[in-house]
């Protein structure tokens, strides 16, 4: 009777393992996650596994066809409005951002000194951010990159939560309009690690309500009515940030009504009563990497109209 003995050994081993577990569990608490974490992939087409609406909004033509065939906005996961329609109200804010971009310090230097007039050398880069900064040895969002440049090279105190930073971010974002988002979150490296941490944070429950980001931004909540709001899945939307967010702004803030993706995450945290992170902090950056990589393969559209003015196909 060999097998039972082996089984006994196995059981003994399992007991040992179980006894060893609590110690490590203390160091890494077991968080509560919303379901769906393992289905997330770093490409916009991954939405098919969540809302199964990707076919209606994957490009301009698909959108047109879906509208013509009588699809309602909520049946398209609310992806129909925003990206195809440009915002003209935002031009003024971009101009102010351009102004800061050209603002000279005492030595006569500005962002333009290195990056070229009209941001010539920054065209398209927004589609590849967040990126790993070798000198800072961390993954950075564009606002964090702007902060590093401004404080270290120009002597301007333009942190991620300042008006100048946000409006320059908007200006730089607009230079990548039409570019396809491409964040490599599959090759081993800091971006992949950041994506995975961000994904875990996105699905992790917390706050006063014990909600995760995923509580609103995965089905069945996505595509439904959250009273006045219309939550959608986490795929694709990052390609439209920074966004001209009239008439909302964070309470007490004045960003000329511009929301970077960092502000958006913070705003969501406040609304769902999770202690809000600092813009540009490692955790917030990880969440942005996750969201931006979930827009891989999707076209950037900045500045975009935030609201759909065509209500004919809204419920």
């Amino acid at each position: 009777m060999n097998i039972p003995r082996k089984l006994k050994l196995l059981a003994f081993g399992a007991c040992l393992a179980a006894a060893a577990l609590p110690a490590s569990a203390e160091e890494y608490p077991k968080f509560d996650y919303m379901p769906g974490k393992e289905l997330a992939i770093p490409h916009v087409s991954g939405d098919a596994k969540f809302s199964n609406t990707y076919q209606y909004w994957k490009d301009e033509k698909a959108l047109e066809d879906a509208k013509k065939s009588g699809k309602m906005s909520h049946e398209m996961n609310y992806k129909d409005f925003r990206w195809a329609v440009k915002s003209f109200d935002a031009e003024g804010a971009i101009d102010i951002g351009r102004g800061y971009y050209n603002e000279k310090n005492a030595k006569g230097q500005s962002c333009a000194s290195c990056h070229g007039a009209e941001g010539k050398k920054l065209k398209g880069i927004y589609a590849n951010y967040p990126a790993y900064n070798k000198r800072l040895k961390r993954v950075v969002t564009v606002p964090t990159q702007i902060k590093a440049c401004a404080t270290e090279r120009l002597g301007f105190d333009w942190k991620e939560n300042t008006r100048q930073n946000t409006l320059i971010d908007f200006f730089v974002g607009s230079l990548s309009d039409g570019k396809v988002v491409k964040i490599d979150a599959t090759s081993p490296g800091p971006i992949k690690a950041s994506y995975e941490r961000g994904r875990d944070l996105f699905f992790k429950r917390g706050g006063h309500f014990n909600f995760a980001c995923a509580s609103c931004h995965t089905p069945p909540a996505a595509g439904k009515y959250l009273r006045g709001q219309r939550p959608t899945t986490f795929f694709g939307d990052a390609a439209q940030y920074p966004i001209y967010h009239f008439p909302y702004s964070l309470p007490g803030d004045d960003f000329e009504y511009v929301f970077t993706l960092q502000h958006q995450i913070k705003s969501c945290q406040i609304l769902s009563r999770i202690y809000p992170g600092e813009e540009g902090s490692p955790a917030m950056t990880d969440i942005e990497v996750f969201l931006k990589a979930s827009a891989n393969g999707y076209k950037m559209s900045v500045p975009v109209a935030e609201y759909n003015m065509d209500t004919s196909y809204l419920d």
Binding site: D32, G206, G207, H208, N210, R273, I274, P276
Partner: peptide
Amino acid sequence: QYPRELLKNFPCHDYDLPCGKMTSP
């Protein structure tokens, strides 16, 4: 409005704050 300070008593996203290591009730 819920006071922001009180939100520190519930799990959050941060890596450094104690709330980042809290778990759901």
